[in-house]
Structure formats: C-alpha cells, structure tokens
Write a protein that binds this DNA or RNA. Structure first.
Lengths: 374, 374
DNA sequence: GTGAAAGCGCTAACAG
DNA sequence: CTGTTAGCGCTTTCAC
C-alpha cells in the first residue's frame, strides 16, 4: 500500500500567489524574459528558488506538445545493450548530437519474452531511433502507424522512415576476399542469431534466413566473395549460430566448430565480440593464431586492436552512425527534410589473419611467409 | 521555420466519438477492463488500432502524477559515459531492475561546460540515480531542494538520499598491501581527475584534494596500507593525475611517470582503463610486466582478465550496484523504506603483479621466484 | 507590462 | 456497466 504523504511540491500558482502576480507572468519570467521588467523577473526567479519551484516538465510537455526527449530502441533486452560495445559507441554518437540540441535521451528495449511494443508505446518522447531492428519489427510498425518520427539504423528499407546504414555487404565481401586471396578454402562462420530465438548450432550458410539486415548483408558479402573466387559457398562455409552476441558464445561456437569435422583454416565471426571468444577458444586449444588458424571479426571495436594477436576486422563508424541517426531524427522533428544515409566500411587487416598452412597449393603468391606447420 | 502540418494524431475523444461511447469508457477499456463488457472492450481496442490511437504518455503522466521513468545521471558529459565500462555494467544492472518494474530509463549527463542542473531540471522522471556524483554536486542539491526521490551511487553521505557504495577503501588497502608484501617500495599512482577540470600532471598523493568519493577512498586505502607497513606515504608514492578516465590517458600518464625521476617498481592505477593504458605504455617501452614493473588497476572490468598479462585489480559488483540503486529508488517511489547499502570489494591477483627485481632486500620471503635482473 | 481564461489529453470520482 | 464533470500544471492568446 504505497502511501503518499510527502508535502506537495510548489506549483506555479503558489509562486504566483507568493509574488502576487498572475500565473502568466511567472511563465513569462521563464520563457519570455522580454515581456516583463528585469527586476520583477529577478524577484520571481529568486522566490522560485526559495520555494524549490521549477516548471513541471510533464505539464509543460503536454501543453507544448513536445518532450525534448529522444527514444533509442535497442533490438534486444536493454540489459544486453550495455555489454554490446558497438551499441555503446553508437550511443556515444547519439548522446553527442542530442546533447548539442539540448535533448534528453530515453532508452527502451525489448522485454525478455518478446518484441512487445509496450516499452515504445508508453515512452514520452518526440521520436525514436531504432537500433538494428529486425524485419517486420512490430515496434517499428507501431510507430509507423501512429505516424511518430523515427529513424532506422541498420534496418530494412520499406518503411516510411529514413535509414542510417553501413556498406555491410561490401565490407564483408572485402573481408572474405582477403581470406580467399590468402588461400583459405574452408571457412567456419560464427554468427549471432539469425532471428530472435533461433536455435544454437550449425545451420545452412544462407543469408535468406536472417531477419537482421546486418547478418543478412554480411553473409551475403562472404558468399559473393566466394562466387568471385569461383568457390562453391555451401562447401566452403559451415555456419554456426550462437544464441547471443557475446564473447562466451563465440568461445563455445569456436570450440564446437574446431572439434567438428569441417576443419576450417579460418574462423569468420560476424562480430568482434564473437571473434574475441574464438580467440580465447584457440588459445585454450593451443591452436596458434594466425599460423594454424585465422580468426577475423567485424565492427572494429577498440579491443580488437589491443588483443594478441590483434584482430583483422571490418571497421564501421559506430559513433558517426549515432550522430547521423540523432541528427536525422532532430531534422524530422524540426520539419526539415531528412534523407537516408549509407556510411562506409573498411577492411582492417591486423595480426589474426594469414595464409593457411597449405597455402602453397593455391597457386597464388602468398603474402605471408608464415606457412610452417605448427 | 519549422512547420507542423502533419495530420493531427487521433485522440481519446476521437475514438470515443467513433465508437459512440464516453471518454471514460475508453479510458476504462485500457486501465479497468473489468468495468466494461469484453465485447465492448474488444471493439474499442480494435477501433483504436485502426485509428492508430494510444493514450498519450505525457497527458497520462500529468494526470497520474507519475512518469514511469527513472533518470540516471552521469557525473560527466553523457558522451563519455558509454566508453566507461564500469558505468555500462552499472547501467546493465539498472536496466534489469527497471525493466522488471516496467519502468523506462532516461539518461542525463553534464553539459560540456559545467555541472549545470538543466539536464536534471527538465527531465520528466519520477526519480534519479546519481552515478558517482562529486561533492556538493549542484544537481544533487537541486533534486534535494525539490524533494524529488533519488539514490546516490558512490556519493557522499550527508544528503537526504540513500547511498549505494562499495568498500572502496578496504579494496584499495588490500591492493596496496599486496604490493608492499611483494616488496614494492616505490609506487607510481595514476588517477583520474580529483575534481572536474583538475590539471593534468603530477600532484601530491593526498586524498583530501579529491572531490570524488571513489578517488578519495582509494587514495586513502593505499596510504593506509603504507602506514601499516610503516612506510612514509609521501616518499613511497608519486601521483599523476589524468584529465579523463581513458586508456589513452593512462598510456600518457605511464609514459610520464616512467620517464620521470621516481622510478617506481609498480604502477597503481585508479581504474582498469588507466591500467590498460599503462600496460600499453610498458609494452611500447619494452618494460616487461610484471618482471620489471607491476601494474595494477581497479574495477575488474571484463577486459582485465583478457589482457596479456592479465590485470591484478580490485573487483567490485558493478551490475549489482545498478540493480541495488534502481531497487532503492523504486522502493522510495512506492513509499517503501529504502536504506543505504555498502557492497563488498575483493582483491583479484592476476598476472600483472609480482615482486620487484630487488625484492630480496626487503627481508620478506618473496612469493615469486622471478627476481632476475632483466 | 500584466492578467483572465481556455485548453493540451487524460483519468477518477461520482452519479445514473 | 456507462456518462458527466473536474482538474492535473502549464503556456498562450487576447484583452486591458
């Protein structure tokens, strides 16, 4: 039984009475300084301070039909969001842009059970940034139906909303191309879930199954690189799907693949988090990286440059995505036109990728001398 | 000139007219299902869907005098928050607790220029969690004056608000004691700013200067350990203060200390971030860690266990702090009593600390055999 | 330069 | 089971 017996907060009316002016004058003191004398304004503000008064944001929001708050919607439960380095960097960009515009930031995620719209419905915000929404995300559909403002980041085209995306497929292409050039012919792919609730374990390396654009594009990029090298993708790649995009899941997946029959010479992880886990697994199994096994990631999170060996990966401008998404949303809210944006990716070759031990067979000149059998 | 010409959203009144019932019935359909027939309710909800109607959160908030939103206030600019791993883990805990309670999460930070109260003033929330507020933070004072609900995490006692803290001083004590036992007699301390805008560079290792409780407690803990070993703290320690709690700043600080005159055998960093930077600096200078130099951190972020060498540090329960803080705040809002909480810390000895090369002199039996001069 | 009054959209008494 | 009404706290015409 919650009991509220706290002394009620001071209201505009109380302050008006105290200073013996009308409510309108109080409001003007805050928002239209030029409409009253400086001395009166000073007196009002001072009394407000004494009373502990400040205009109620909710009432103000109702009256002004604006909240000054942007909602950022994470595709998964919010508690996962903060151990997802790319999302953190993305938020950093969003925070920069919103702060510059004096907007506040509200975070929403999915519930544990489903992609319920509830967190989005009841959020008092002026618009939403959807981070990596899956196909047909009901929350996006809801916002669209209500004709609220929104921006989709790494989301599907087809909605009314502007998009911020990255050249995911070409980044993945460059990465796989790099491996094929080195002579790799057997790839173990480690992916985050293709869609919510997708079962852990081996699956067909078919991007058509993926409900997340990033997953689909990356798988498509790898496959395209295989085509370029005239390699049969289904034979070249074996795909292992994890339940979460985490280091631990990457570790387990790598163990599963490396103890399996396919004996890949390279592990291609759809995120650096997964790659970090794969690196740990290789260490545990005493498989030297990159001599006996190449491991590559995606995202270029800061830690990718710090691990031993450092991680070959695809760079994408996380913070820039955040800034762009927030700006696009702010533009919409201000009635300015906002158009979709595609940001570049870039292959970053570091220490975790090299020619496989039997690269001599490929006939190409290997760029790496390290072909000794360990 | 922003122009709003979008078709106005459907309102409760519109829906009431459409279904030919009174506004109250619409409201009841949402919040008191038992007060109307199931068929009528179904009809209402269906029509609402068709209209794209949903009760306006702001209006609801005004009427109910509650927003269902918790504000988390970061001590620094929000854009720093997301590259601060301990804060991310903290948020994870907060998110878990708020999600369970079906609350939303609003994030606020400082402005670039100062610790302005504005971000806190205009936030439509039911209460605040202050993360690591400095002494006399004006935003805390403001919230106190307005008699809003709040919880202080790693903050000063003395306000009206319950606290969530950790045993910072004893953690620091255990860490420094560990080093002294190993035989270290010269420590380089690397600290984040003692107060906002504190100048970069060497400073007196006096905890009294620190405006942040964590900094003060940790410095005090180190000094207490020195006292226990009857070592004169001012001679044992040299303190270098960085401008930001970042890896890069830790790197620069370590360079400054190691190229200075004091020649410490151990670098004691007030955060793992700083320690990661120190590790990088040691690598660059080809100083073997821990043989020639011990490096220790604080916080036990996940990466601390993954670096080479792995980092000796002090563990603290970041996510648990977040859960506790959110719960305490939720308790206050529900009228339940909420009391302060002190969570334990724990020394975690890993690979980055060992006896110094000249440990033989100390007379204690060294726990490490590695004393060779390199 | 200041005040009276209307109303943003919703919910909860209370009456029927 | 349903409708009428008041009012949450604020801002803003529009008079004066």
């Amino acid at each position: 039984m919650p009991v509220k017996l706290r002394k009620p907060r001071a209201r505009l009316k109380d302050l008006a009475r105290l200073v013996s002016v009308s409510p309108a004058t109080i409001s003007n003191a805050y928002h239209h300084p030029e409409r009253l004398s400086a001395t009166l304004r000073a007196k009002i503000l001072e009394s407000a301070d004494k009373l502990g008064y400040h205009p109620d944001p909710t009432a103000r929001g109702l009256r002004m039909q604006t909240t000054g708050t942007l909602g950022v919607v994470y595709a998964d439960a919010l508690s996962w969001a903060f151990i997802d380095p790319p999302f953190s960097m993305f938020l950093q960009g969003v925070a920069e842009a919103t702060q510059d515009a004096h907007f506040r930031l509200l975070l929403a995620g999915a519930t544990y059970t489903d992609h319920d719209v509830e967190p989005v419905r009841n959020a008092a915000v002026d618009g939403f940034v959807f981070y990596a929404p899956m196909m047909h995300d009901p929350r996006v559909a809801y916002v669209e139906q209500r004709e609220l403002a929104a921006v989709l980041v790494d989301g599907e085209p087809g909605s009314a909303f502007p998009l911020v995306g990255i050249e995911d497929e070409s980044g993945a292409f460059a990465l796989a191309d790099h491996l094929f050039r080195l002579g790799h012919r057997k790839l173990g792919i480690i992916s985050m879930p293709l869609r919510p609730g997708y079962p852990i374990g081996f699956a067909e390396p078919d991007e058509g199954l993926a409900a997340f654009l990033a997953v689909r594009d990356r798988l498509a990029g790898y496959a395209a690189a295989a085509r370029k090298h005239r390699l049969p993708w289904q034979e070249v790649a074996s795909l292992y799907v994890t339940s979460v995009n985490s280091i631990e899941q990457g570790r387990q997946a790598a163990h599963a693949i490396l103890s399996g029959p396919s004996a890949p010479t390279a592990l291609v992880c759809l995120s650096d988090q997964l790659a970090l886990g794969a690196l740990a697994a290789a260490r545990e199994l005493r498989v030297p990286v990159p001599q006996a096994l190449s491991i590559v990631g995606y995202d270029d999170i800061p830690e990718a440059a710090r691990t031993t060996p450092s991680l070959t990966t695809v760079h994408q401008p996380h913070a820039e995505k955040g800034r762009a998404a927030a700006r696009l949303l702010l533009d919409q809210l201000a009635g300015r036109k906002s158009t979709s944006l595609l940001l570049p990716t870039r292959l970053v070759v570091r220490g975790s990728s090299a020619a496989p031990m039997n690269a001599a067979r490929t006939g190409r000149k290997s760029m790496s001398g390290r072909s000794s059998r360990g």
